[in-house]
Amino acid sequence: MRDSRAPSSTEQFVQRFKRQLYRLVTFFAFLVCLMGALYSQAHPLAYGIMGTLFLGSHLYLTVFPNPNLPRAEGVNLFLGTLLTLYQLYTGIFWKPVALEGYWVLFTMTSLSVLAFSYQRALQVIVLQGTLGLLTPWGADLLHHQFNANDRLYLISMQVLVLAAMSLQSAVAWFKEQFYTAETHRQVLEQQAWTDPLTGLHNRRSTLRTLKEALQRPRTATVILLDIDHFKSINDRFGHNTGDEVLRGVARLLHLKVRGEDHVGRWGGEEFLLILPNTCLQDALLVAEKIHEALQEHPFETVGQVTASLGVATHQASESVQDWVNRADQALYQSKQTGRNRVSAHPFQTS
């Protein structure tokens, strides 16, 4: 059964990608700050402080198994913004004007494009871009450090910054479109292979797994389960209660199998379990555990629900249809001998 609250494969990939990206960026930022602390004439102490903070962030992302990524995002953005503004502010006092802060600005906005949604990336680009563009002019208004050449140089640099941020905004938009389309594709794919009522694999998915089982060299066994007197449950208690019974049985089946086993809704009140690498006798033990668990499990409104089960192990050169038909024959044997029991093909009943 699939948990709708569990993260999708795309979301899991994004989280893993973000963590690796932040580790790489924080380590690179630490190296840049280390070089600045050793060789910068403008602000070595600021580089040293920032480098220490970036190193701490990198260690946090590396050492802890489940780091708080949103918090790491906020801290690293704050550090990068602080370093950028400090560099741009102090850069006006150097001749020629030192605008190395724009490289940090470009790094931070590029990181936002890679890691954030389009709206958040756009917010970061606009905020940091605005602060980056206005800071040198604001500092000059306070200290009157620019000459005509400095202003021309700053304007030319800021034109390039604006062009780069425009390109980043476009890349962020295209990335968002791709992510949205991929997420939608995965949702449709899951719907195509999942039974909407129980959350189990549907018949189409189960048929695919049966065909895949034929390609493997090891023995596989199927268990076909049919809820006894299910029509009378619907007639007596209503279809909503019948649906709850189906969901309850699905949850119980999911708890009683291994992670490698396949549990699917075959149709109506029938469920099909595919047990790879399992011989007939081991599969009968699994079927008995399911049979006993159903007998011991009280269902709300209905009370006790029983089921008949048929078990069949795949035989050499046998088709999927013949394999499932033998499990169906074993199930029929359980029905004919009184229901609420397990039978196997070749016939043996318990």
Rank of each mutant, 00 (worst) to 15 (best):
L280I: 05
T278G: 14
L273V: 13
L255R: 15
L272F: 04
W266Q: 02
T278K: 00
V286L: 07
D282R: 13
E292V: 10
D282F: 07
V263R: 02
A287H: 02
L285H: 11
E260S: 05
G264E: 02
D261Q: 11
L275E: 07
R265H: 04
I290M: 11
L273P: 07
L255E: 10
E269D: 13
K289S: 04
T278C: 15
V263M: 02
W266T: 13
L285R: 05
W266M: 03
A250K: 05
E260G: 00
I290S: 07
Q281R: 04
E288C: 08
L275N: 06
L275K: 03
D282S: 12
L285I: 00
P276D: 08
V286Q: 02
G267H: 02
A293M: 00
W266E: 00
Q281W: 08
G264A: 07
L273M: 11
T278F: 15
I290T: 09
G259Q: 07
L284Q: 09
A287Y: 07
L285T: 04
H262E: 02
L252H: 13
L253D: 02
Q281S: 11
D261H: 11
E292K: 14
R265W: 04
P276E: 03
E288A: 06
E270G: 06
K289Q: 13
K256V: 02
L285Y: 01
V286M: 05
V257T: 01
L252K: 11
A250D: 05
E260I: 10
C279L: 08
L280C: 10
H254G: 14
V263I: 07
H291K: 08
P276G: 12
L252R: 12
G259F: 10
V286N: 02
H254R: 12
P276L: 08
V263D: 01
N277R: 10
E269M: 09
L285N: 03
R251Q: 15
E288T: 07
V257W: 01
L273A: 08
L253I: 03
E288K: 10
L253A: 04
D261A: 10
R251N: 14
L272S: 03
D282C: 10
I274M: 14
E269K: 08
R258D: 01
V249I: 01
L255G: 14
